[in-house]
Design a protein around this nucleic acid. Sequence first.
DNA 1: ATTGACTCTATAGTCACTATAGAGTTTAGA
DNA 2: TCTAAACTCTATAGTGACTATAGAGTCAAT
Lengths: 150, 150
Amino acid sequence: MKIGELAKRTGCSVQAIRYYEKENLLPSTRRSDGNFRLYDESYIEQLSFIRLCRGLDLSLSEVRQLLSLKNSPGADCDEVNYMMEAHIQQVEARINDLMELNDQLRALRSYCSDQQTVENCGILQSLSSSVDDRPTGDTHDRHNGATFSG
Amino acid sequence: MKIGELAKRTGCSVQAIRYYEKENLLPSTRRSDGNFRLYDESYIEQLSFIRLCRGLDLSLSEVRQLLSLKNSPGADCDEVNYMMEAHIQQVEARINDLMELNDQLRALRSYCSDQQTVENCGILQSLSSSVDDRPTGDTHDRHNGATFSG
DNA sequence: ATTGACTCTATAGTCACTATAGAGTTTAGA
DNA sequence: TCTAAACTCTATAGTGACTATAGAGTCAAT
């Protein structure tokens, strides 16, 4: 099958497949006379594995590690466990950050009732004022996990 | 003060400050004879506003909107409210996605007990097997909110 | 005069792709 | 057989919010 069919059958974009190949997550295939990539059924499984991992938010480098572990069946699977554990902790940390963030956003929203002008908008006031009444800005613990880390 | 001091006093990197200037989030300053940027105290407040918004995960384009609203005090603040509401919903959707994800990861982790080989690793098996026993892969609802949207 | 700390601009890199340009290939219908 | 549409190819640029680096200039202290 050609790349378009593989894309359709895996729910993946054509460019993503080419990208995975370039990044050595998928082995390169044979080509047709016209230089089109030709895939057999086994690629559906391989690509689905990648998509499944990505759906779990694993990075491509983590997926690469899992793939190489898959190919050495005798190795013990501590590494897999370790990676999953680390990933779970990352996800949970991110959830905690976002929930804290959500509290702050909701508090902020409550400062502004409708039908006011920007001049009196509690949200903007609250975002603007927090500097003046604090000594240097170093003393309050800054929420530092909110920006995307990767 | 020069850029380094501003950076220290706001907890911001020097490059980030230059970036904000380039992106028109901070007005450009006067320069010294040697072409160094010179800031007065008001920049601390302006930069802190930006950092605070970023700490709430607002995008720079959202921050830009807020800044322009701040500068038109007579306007009504519906826009601010609308933006905050949209942002809160985004954050909450992301939290839900991550919590679902977390359930899946924990389930996956439970499939593999220690001291096994990769060959028998329940995690890898479970990531690999889910294709063969399903018709096309289209029927099961794919978790599609896990990848970062921005 | 020189060292070291700071600053400048410009450019490349990050991540996991998406989007586009410009070219070639294949397939279906007239 | 011609042609148009649909597909594929490579290469390159763009996304967001920065960070990191190179190579040069500036400034303060010794």
